[in-house]
Design a protein around this nucleic acid. Structure first.
Lengths: 354, 354
DNA sequence: TGTTAGCACTCATTTTGGTCGAGTGCTAAC
DNA sequence: GTTAGCACTCGACCAAAATGAGTGCTAACA
């Protein structure tokens, strides 16, 4: 059996309608609402074929048809028209997010929120994370009699603090000296290249602070390795409650449980697979391997943060989500983020606060 | 009419039962389940009185009785037995939270999560915030050709970073010098005491960096004023979906909406009112002034972080929540936090990582 | 005077049965 | 190949009836 043009038009009608109404749709309704020039009976025959081909399915005998996962897949891959964002939508995004790179967390938070409002789905945004960062500068700062802070500036300009506790903390001048020595050590080298001999020499030079210096190095190295504490910003979880497919509280609870787990969210956003880096990905229903999210689809994308660093954005909605709008919105926001962050990191534009 | 001992025992039975079952409870059930030695008829008479006194109410004529807000209030204030935590519960908390003060955010996150799991309610934890902080140390760090970071160490040992962008950034040595001058300026003074004259003198001394220095001062001062970005950690929102009182999706949605708003959460935890600082507070149903949370109660407490700084913890559940357990758990966790953080801030114990 | 058994009454919830209508598949005619 | 017609299916909806937990009141009892 071939998937001819008419079948495709019918499938498209079914999907469009189902996305809008969440109700199974029958042959007569299609004939009435969509001007295909054929009778309900013919549509019935075609639908029967479509069902056999696996693009639609029937909840029960006397109900209309509903798109299947395979049907959606065909739709998003071939049929869906990407639509332009309305100027209201563009404005909304522009106003809702203060693109201020000095306050990344705030910006991410706002992004998640704005997307959730605009799409009325749930959004998840992760902080940009670096694949391969190197250290640009290290500075030690006195905090207390037995504490100092090690501030590490990475070359993606993110700044990490570590508190170092030790019984014997150098004074401010010494801290500055040690900072300078560490900086000259790591200059133009990746942290892996630093030989333990170098560290030993430094420890020897400041022999009474050996404990302290060892801890500093440990902390600095951990900055690079630190993978686990990616921040994840979620918004609009409650939106899902508005959709009839989740009006069953038990179902909703499961989904919410998943969306509360940071680890889950990270896998959801496709940890690691940066292969399809710049493309928007659509994961339909059971294609994600999480039982609880069987009835959800995810539209996700990466945004770039300078050269080495990517963050992820995902929008989670019911399987019958409005893919077209979602993709457009996501495209827009990724473009915006790429621009603003790119400009910042590469220092192309002015952007100096007054 | 007097609230005699028997009435109180009946009220207690009603509340206990309602907390467990969420079902209105009638006279016969009380007579059967609670061994009060009186007949249903007598209980009916007493219940009629209790209703007149406003401690219980009747959803509709032929239903049992349900505790009223006033009833709960009496219960938590006078009747409720504080119960010891079981050793399993104590262990659970100990294992679930890694009390590592170097990673405050992580600890807060874990605390929220652990409490949510243990109580099966929703928990909200705010970062400790200082009433009145002063600055202990400022350090400027080079980042880029046209950027530097200002790292501010507060006397509660929290560390804040600011990125300063300016066309003309001093080199590392100069940054150290300027840092030193700023530090000697603020030493033993509150930031308000710094006269604009002082700043002007510094600007004059480093005249080519006037833009930069001005911005640094602005950033440093904003650290102190920065109120808005308190971190709030929430967990177990989905737990609420498990309770029959929220099985109405529309209701649940409202509550979720509120719990997604950071501002709401902060007011909920009682922004500002540090009067009853060390006591656990219980807010029953409509006593909070948020329409959406009419059916929720909140049990909240402050925990201390050093001398000047407090964070807040709140547990949100249905009005018929298990107050006794919740209070015990909260007590325990506050004690734990006070201890671990207190020890850290005051530097009393060793606690040096090896 | 306080307690209790008995009883009529109330009312939300559940059950039952019936109708409605949207939808189907099949067949026969066009 | 398309369409009209028809019998059939089955969930949704509705109203009436049954159920049962609970009440308030009254009268009898200790």
């Amino acid at each position: 059996m071939k998937l001819n043009d008419r079948k495709i038009r019918i499938l498209e009608a079914i999907i469009t309608d189902y996305i809008a109404t969440a109700e199974p749709i029958g042959s007569r309704t299609i004939a009435r609402k969509y001007d295909l020039g054929i009778s309900p009976a013919t549509i019935r025959n075609e639908m029967s074929d479509l069902e056999e081909l696996g693009f639609i399915e029937q909840p029960h005998t006397s109900a209309g048809r509903v798109p299947s996962q395979k049907g959606y897949r065909l739709y998003v891959d071939n049929l869906m028209q990407s639509r332009e964002l309305s100027s209201e939508e563009v404005d909304f995004l522009k106003n809702a997010i203060s693109f201020n790179v000095n306050r990344i967390e705030y910006m991410m938070e706002q992004t998640a929120k704005a997307l959730a409002m605009l799409t009325s789905y749930t959004t998840v945004v992760t902080e940009p994370r670096s694949k391969k960062v190197s250290i640009r500068h290290v500075q030690l700062i006195p905090v207390d009699r037995d504490e100092a802070a090690a501030v590490v500036v990475l070359d993606n300009k993110s700044i990490k603090n570590h508190i170092i506790r030790s019984r014997n903390i150098p004074d401010t001048d010494k801290l500055n000296n040690i900072s300078a020595e560490i900086n000259s050590l790591i200059k133009d080298r990746s942290i892996e290249d630093i030989k333990s001999g170098d560290v030993a020499r430094l420890v020897e030079k400041y022999t009474s602070y050996s404990d302290f210096i060892t801890k500093v190095f440990k902390a600095v190295i951990s900055t690079i390795q630190q993978q686990e504490d990616v921040h994840v910003y979620t918004s609009g979880v409650r939106n899902l409650l508005g959709f009839p497919e989740f009006s069953d509280v038990a179902k909703a609870k499961n989904i919410f449980q998943t969306l509360e787990e940071k680890d889950m969210l990270i896998t959801l956003l496709g940890e690691g697979d940066d292969t399809s880096a710049d493309k928007i990905q659509i994961i339909i229903g059971g294609e994600n391997n999480m039982e609880e999210l069987r009835d959800c689809s995810i539209v996700r994308a990466n945004y770039r943060f300078g050269k080495n660093s990517v963050g992820k954005i995902g929008i989670i909605g019911p399987t019958r989500m409005n893919y077209s709008q979602t993709v457009s919105v996501l495209n827009e926001i990724v473009k915006k983020l790429d621009n603003v962050i790119g400009a910042f990191v590469d220092g192309k534009d002015g952007g100096y606060d007054e």
